[in-house]
Amino acid sequence: MLYCVGDIHGFTGQLDRTLQLIEADGGADAPIVFLGDYVDRGPNAKGTIQTLIDGQAAGRPWTCLIGNHDLMFWRFVTSGITQDAHILSNKGWLHHRLGGNTTLASYIDADDLQAATGMTNFATEGLDPTPTDALNSLKELAQNAVPKEHLDWIAAQPRFYQTHEHTFVHAGLRVGVPLSKQTEEDLTWIRDGWLDSDADHGNVVVHGHTALDFPQHHGNRVNLDSGAGYGRTLVPAVLDGGKWFTLHETGRTALTPTT
Score class of each variant (00 low, 15 high):
Leu135Tyr: 12
Val238Ser: 12
Cys64Trp: 09
Leu65Phe: 08
Met1Asn: 11
Arg60Met: 08
Thr132Phe: 07
Arg41Ile: 00
Ala228Thr: 04
Lys139Val: 15
Ala145Thr: 04
Gly227Leu: 10
Ala199Pro: 05
Gly80Pro: 07
Gly59Ala: 09
Met119Arg: 14
Val77Tyr: 14
Val175Leu: 02
Pro131Asp: 08
Leu98Tyr: 05
Ala110Thr: 11
Gly67Leu: 01
Pro43Arg: 10
Asp196Ser: 04
Asn220Ala: 06
Arg41Met: 02
Ala30Asp: 00
Phe122Ser: 10
Thr18Glu: 14
Leu151Met: 07
Gly118Trp: 13
Gly172Pro: 01
Asp213Ile: 07
Arg174His: 12
His170Arg: 09
Phe245Gly: 10
Leu239Met: 04
Leu255Arg: 06
Gly172Asp: 08
Leu65Cys: 05
Gly27Trp: 03
Asp128Ile: 01
Gly27Ala: 03
Asn220Val: 03
Thr246Arg: 11
Gly208Met: 13
Leu247Ala: 02
Ile66Met: 01
Pro129Tyr: 11
His201Asp: 01
Gly227Arg: 12
Gly10Phe: 06
Ser79Phe: 14
Pro147Ala: 10
Ala24Cys: 10
Met1Arg: 12
Thr210Arg: 00
His150Thr: 11
His150Ala: 11
Thr78Arg: 15
Val169Ile: 03
Pro215Trp: 08
Phe11Asn: 15
Leu135His: 15
His218Pro: 00
Gly27Ile: 04
Gln216Cys: 07
Asn220Cys: 08
Glu140Tyr: 13
Leu151Asn: 08
Ile49Cys: 03
Pro215Val: 02
Asp192Trp: 04
Cys4Gln: 04
His207Lys: 03
Leu135Pro: 14
His96Glu: 13
Lys139Cys: 15
Ile87Met: 14
Asn203Ser: 14
His217Ala: 03
Pro236Phe: 13
Thr130Pro: 07
Ile22Lys: 11
Ile154Asp: 10
Leu179Ser: 02
Gln114Asn: 08
Ile66Asp: 00
Cys64Phe: 09
Trp194Pro: 04
Thr82Asn: 06
Val204Ala: 08
